[in-house]
Amino acid sequence: MSRIAEWLKKAENLARGHSKQADQILDRAEKYAKERTGHKYDDQISKGTDAVQQRYGGGGGQQSGQQQPGQQPAGQETQEERERRMPPQG
């Protein structure tokens, strides 16, 4: 087995053991990818996200794009998220 295949298998096993956290990371990655592509490939990105979540048993039966209780609506980020994304100035 190649090193990449071993790494992917370890990542999958880790995601299976921590599916809630993996879902959160994947949701953030999905949002970022959609923003970076100007929402031109939203359907393909959502399908890819769903495929990854099915692979490790994540997603919680929730379709991509649906808001979870206590979550910000899509496209609205908090001040903390903006600060984290922006490099320090000065």
Rank of each mutant, 00 (worst) to 15 (best):
L8Y: 14
G90Y: 04
E83M: 08
T49Q: 15
I4V: 09
K47M: 11
G70E: 07
P69I: 12
E77M: 15
K10G: 11
K47L: 12
G59C: 01
D27T: 12
D50F: 05
Q68K: 14
Q66F: 12
D50A: 14
E81S: 02
A74C: 07
G61Y: 00
R28T: 15
Y56R: 03
Q63R: 01
R82F: 02
Q21R: 06
G57H: 01
G60A: 06
E77D: 15
Q67I: 06
T49V: 14
E80C: 08
G65T: 01
M1I: 05
G60S: 09
A33Y: 00
K47S: 13
D42L: 09
Q66P: 09
K34A: 08
K47C: 10
I4L: 04
D23P: 09
D23R: 11
P87K: 04
A29H: 08
A5K: 10
D43K: 15
G75V: 14
E77G: 13
G90Q: 07
H18R: 03
W7D: 15
E30I: 13
G61E: 01
A15I: 00
Q24H: 05
K31P: 15
K31M: 15
Q62V: 08
Q63L: 04
A15V: 00
P88L: 06
G61L: 00
R16F: 10
S2G: 14
R84L: 12
A33F: 01
G61A: 04
G58R: 00
H39M: 01
G65W: 00
P87N: 05
R36E: 15
G17T: 10
Q66G: 06
P69R: 03
R3E: 08
K9T: 12
G61P: 02
K9S: 14
R82N: 04
G61Q: 00
G59K: 00
Y32N: 06
G58Q: 00
Q54P: 02
R85I: 02
A22C: 03
R16E: 13
G57D: 00
R16I: 15
E12C: 02
G60L: 07
S19N: 08
D27H: 03
D27M: 05
Q24T: 05
Q76A: 11
K31E: 15
G57K: 02
D50E: 13
Q79Y: 06
H39E: 05
Q71I: 01
G61S: 04
Q24F: 03
K9A: 15
H39C: 03
G59F: 01
I25W: 07
Q44C: 12
R84W: 10
H18Q: 08
Y41S: 06
R36Q: 13
M86H: 11
Q62Y: 11
E77R: 12
K40F: 15
G58S: 01
G70Q: 11
E83P: 03
D27V: 08
R3C: 08
A29Q: 11
G57C: 02
